[in-house]
Structures are given as C-alpha cells and as structure tokens.
Design a protein around this nucleic acid. Structure first.
Length: 549
DNA sequence: AGTTTCGGCGCC
DNA sequence: AAAGGGCGCCGAAACT
C-alpha cells in the first residue's frame, strides 16, 4: 500500500512509504497536505477507518483513465501497472475484472488488492502523467480535472463511511401506507394483490400486471393494440384496466426496488450505506453501487431523517445544465440570462417564447438532449434565433460525435468516439454498422445525413459536453464544500448530480448554507474562469429530506 | 443451473 | 402530446 507525500509544487517530497500502515504514515507527516497514491478507493477507506483524513490527494489510476481518454486511447488498460508497462515498454497487463458490490459490505476494505507497484515505479508513472498533462489542449484545465476528480474520490469515500441518516421505522410506516400488510411467504402485499385483482376483473380473465407480455396480450384480446406497457402509452388508452394497472406498476416498483427487503439489505444502525463511486461514468457523473441510491423515489425520502438535534441541509443547483451551457458556449444572450439568479427558464421564455416557461424549458432540454421530434424540435428554431452560439455549441458537438471525432468537456474529460450511444453494444448485438454518411463538403450540417448509430453517437456527444462539463463543475463544488466543512461536525452525506445533502448540528446549518453558496461561486470561477454566469442553489434546512422543496 | 439480455421505471 | 441524454435496479425471458 504505497503512498508518497507531495509538496506544494506537486513534486514528491520524500521520505516515502513503502508498506506498513498507511495511517501511521500519514499521521507521521502532519505538515503534508497532499498525497499521491495508486487508488483512492483502496487506500482511503482504510485511512478513514483508522480515523485519518487527508486534505488532498492525487489518484494515479484515475488520472490514467482521464489522460488515456484525452489521448484518444480509451480501450487500453488503465491500471498503474499497465501505465508503467507502457512507460517502460513491457507487456501491458489487462485490467482485473470488476466485482459487483454486496449489500452492506464495505467492499474495498479487506479485499485482495490489485497489483501493487513499488513506490519508485509509481512515482515514475506520476512524473510521466505530469508530462502528459502538459501535452493536452489546456494543461491547466486538465490538471484541475485530475485534481478535482481525486478530490471527488475523497468525498465519495467519506460519504460512504458516513452513510445517509435513515429511519427504518418511518420507512416501514410509508411502506405500510402505500402497500398495505405483507402476507406470509413473501408474496405481494395486500394493496398490490387488490390492484392485480382489479386489473384481472377489468379484463375478464387472470392477468399478471407485472408481466408486460401478458398485459399486451390481454389488451389485444380486448381489441386494443399496444406496442408496449409504458405508462404514457397506457394512459392514452380508454379501458377500465388502465387505472389499476398504472397504480400497480407504480407501487410494484417501490415494493421490489425500495421495499422491506431493500430495508433489510441496505439499512443498518440508522444509516443507508450505498457505495458512491466518483468518476464511474463516461460523462463524469457519479454512480452508486448497490441500493439504488441515486433513484430513491420521492415518497421514500420521508425516511431520510436527521439525527436528534441535527439537520439536513438539502441544496439543489438551479437550472444547472443551461447555466453550464451558457458558461461553455459563451453565448452572449444566454450568459446574460444565466448571469441572474432568477429562474433561467422564465428569462429564456420572456425573450424567445412569449413568457411560456414550459415551452422554453422543453426547448432548452431538447437542444441539450438532441430531441428529434415533438414540441421541443419546433421550438428549437426560436431558441436558435435568440441564442445562436449556445445551440451551435451543442450542434458542433453532435456533428463531431457523428463523425467519430473526440469531444471534450470544459476541463478536458473526453468522450470516446463510440461510447455509450451503442456503437459497441450495437455491434455486439449484430446490428450492421453502416458508415456515417458524409455531408457534401462545405454544406452546413443538418440532421439526417448520418446513420442511425451515428445519430445516436451525435446525441450522446451533444449531451456529453453539457452533462460532463456540469460534472466538472460539481466536482469542484464538492471539493470546496468539503473543505468548508472540514472544521465542523457537518458531514456530506449525499450527492446526486446537482444536489447535495449535508448532515450537521442545528447550530451549524446556517453556516453550511452560506458555505454552499460560496462553494458554488468558487467552483464556477475555478472551472470556467471569468464568466458572468451565476450558479445559484436552492437550499432547505430540514429534519426530513421529503420536506425539502 | 447459471448467466446475459430485455422491458420498464426510478432519479437527475 | 409524447420524445431526446445519463445511470442502476428488478424480475422475467432468453440464452448457454
């Protein structure tokens, strides 16, 4: 378990530590504020378990992933051992397979470790990575990115240790209200059984509402053709089974995903402990392993309750994605509306949609997501007239994605040419891969030239630059907020894309609220440089998560 | 019997 | 009215 101290200049300042207890090593060098190590997820939980916190770190393997991506070498093994092999010219070892998380296990604590490198080798990789930062398009931003993501990994490890305060009693009460009594044998609870009976009665025969094929067949026998049993499609039908069916599906979902067995598996000692993983996705958004922590249904949030005398500070970034688009595109009009803290969609609609906020919101999100039909597309033209640079920015990204070129976030996180949008998976599924059709040279890009897969890549890339740059910003936000909370009892306990929860004693709550505001503005300046764009948060100080907003 | 994919839906 | 991005999770269905 090798780690080395870094001086203020980013250079190793020995002596270095080869083995033994890393906690002792860190304790022995209190003047060191930054450590370099192979993997935060393997080192830092052990440090925390020993009561040791570090201010900053540099994660070699995480930086390797980001640098390989930036260099357009996405498929290559990203372990420190692989990086060293590339540096020294030896055979490159493949990455070890990933392992799924078990409920309630602090997985990375006592598991077999990946290949360890002697510290001198690790530092050779580190030095090489520093050189590779210099070779990127924006070295300062790339340095900020690897630093920010390392900081995010510290935050994630600390959140994993803290856990989200969770009242099992409240959770059980909510489940009982929604689902009714449980029956022995683990079958459906009362309310679901009743709804299933109503569905069957409406069809005149036994129908299992949880089986899409059965439901489609039942509608066909009733003379109604449906392509799927998605809710929006069902709700357009005129049939007595629709209402209980939709209600069943909603409750069924809660039962299977956040019901009694979930509670049994994931909540212990008043805490829900998912495993947060910073940088788990191509876009830089976080993921969680186990427990569906980023998909807690609104009704279940009733169970997130602060400890006695403590509060939850729930903070939600206001219209994050269009504000980020303003900052990265530097569209004058969009920067102007994003320079105010007031509702951005309302401002956009005042300018381009005669005050219809919903239309403006649909148009903006449609532009960011690459909507191909419907009202969003219709309103895209109005958006393009008023905010031409902003729309051009995402259009350019989409075209680059279609053509297989690299696309980057503001700080330099790079979208692989065929990631996510299905080129690989489509290929594995046997879908023919037609070449992206080229628009005639000199013509302006229009949708429709490209193949289906290329268009999917385009939508991915379009969204990537916004969603990913937003993730860049939130990493710096978290880092700043973590630092602000360092001297207090306050703990970060939850993070979900544009929303953060801090658990703190009641008397610290107002300080935390202010800290969030300051961290957001600092993160904006650090990430995007001088920009008029503001990044306001809605904050609520509550005892129960469900009472926020 | 064990593993992978699919359909659907939760959150942003 | 109904479609675009990301992710995880579940049971069933479809495989090997």
């Amino acid at each position: 378990m090798e780690l080395a101290p870094l001086g203020p200049d980013g250079l190793p300042c020995g002596p270095v530590l080869r083995e033994g207890d890393p906690a002792e090593a860190v304790r022995g060098r209190p003047e060191v504020t930054r450590w370099v190590w192979r993997s935060t997820t393997e080192v830092y939980p052990r440090l925390l378990a020993s009561g040791v916190r570090v201010e900053r770190c540099y994660d070699i393997e995480d930086a390797e992933i980001l640098l390989l991506g930036h260099e357009g070498r996405y498929g290559e093994p990203r372990s420190a051992a692989a990086a060293l092999a590339r540096l020294r010219g030896g055979p490159v070892p493949p990455d070890p397979p990933q392992r799924a998380a078990e409920p309630g296990s602090q997985s990375s604590l006592f598991e077999p470790q990946a290949v360890q490198l002697p510290l001198t080798d690790l530092l050779a990789v580190y030095a090489d990575q520093q050189r590779r930062h210099d070779a990127t398009a924006h070295p300062d931003r790339m340095r900020l990115l690897t630093a920010a993501e390392s900081a995010g990994m510290l935050v994630a490890a600390e959140m994993n240790r803290a856990g989200l305060p969770w009242s099992a009693d409240v959770h059980r009460r909510v489940l009982h209200e929604l689902l009714g009594e449980r029956y022995a044998g683990g079958g459906e609870p009362r309310r679901l059984a009743e709804l299933a009976d109503e569905v069957s009665a409406a069809f005149g025969r036994r129908v299992r509402p949880d089986l899409p094929a059965d439901v489609v067949k039942a509608f066909a026998q009733a003379g109604i053709k449906v392509k799927s049993t998605r809710r929006w499609e069902l709700e357009s039908l005129d049939h007595p089974a629709v209402k209980p069916l939709v209600e069943y599906k909603k409750l069924y979902r809660i039962w299977v995903a956040h019901g009694w067995s979930w509670l049994q598996d994931w909540v212990r000692d008043g805490r829900f402990r998912p495993e947060f993983l910073a940088g788990g996705t191509v876009t830089g958004r976080w993921v969680t392993n186990g427990g569906g922590a980023l998909q807690i249904p609104k009704v279940i949030r009733r169970a997130v309750v602060a400890d006695p005398g403590w509060r939850l500070v729930v903070a939600d970034a206001d219209q994050m994605e269009p504000r980020v688009l303003a900052a990265i595109s530097r569209d004058p009009g969009l920067m102007e509306v994003a320079g105010r803290e007031s509702d951005l969609y309302q401002s956009v609609s005042d300018r381009a949609f005669s005050g219809d906020r919903d239309q403006a919101k649909i148009a903006v999100l449609g532009a960011v997501y690459g909507q191909t039909s419907g009202d969003g597309l219709k309103n895209l033209a109005a958006l393009r007239r008023r905010f031409p640079r902003a729309v051009a920015y995402v259009d350019d990204a989409a075209r680059a994605g279609e053509e297989g070129r690299l696309v980057r976030t503001w700080l330099g996180r790079t979208c692989p040419p065929a990631a996510g949008a299905g080129e690989d998976s489509a290929e594995e599924a046997g879908i023919p891969q037609d070449e992206p059709a080229e628009a005639p040279a000199g013509t302006e890009w229009v949708p429709g030239y490209a193949s289906t897969n290329a268009r999917a890549r385009g939508r991915f890339a379009r969204n990537f630059v916004v969603q990913g740059s937003a993730a860049d910003w939130t990493l710096l936000l978290l880092a700043a907020l973590r630092q602000a909370c360092a001297g207090m009892a306050a703990e970060l306990v939850f993070f979900q894309h544009d929303e953060v929860i801090v658990h703190c004693p009641e008397e610290e709550a107002e300080v935390v609220v202010a800290a969030i505001r300051e961290a957001a503005e600092l993160a904006g300046r650090l990430t995007f440089g001088e920009t008029p764009v503001r990044f306001p948060f809605s904050t609520a100080v509550v005892e129960c998560y469900a009472d926020a907003k």
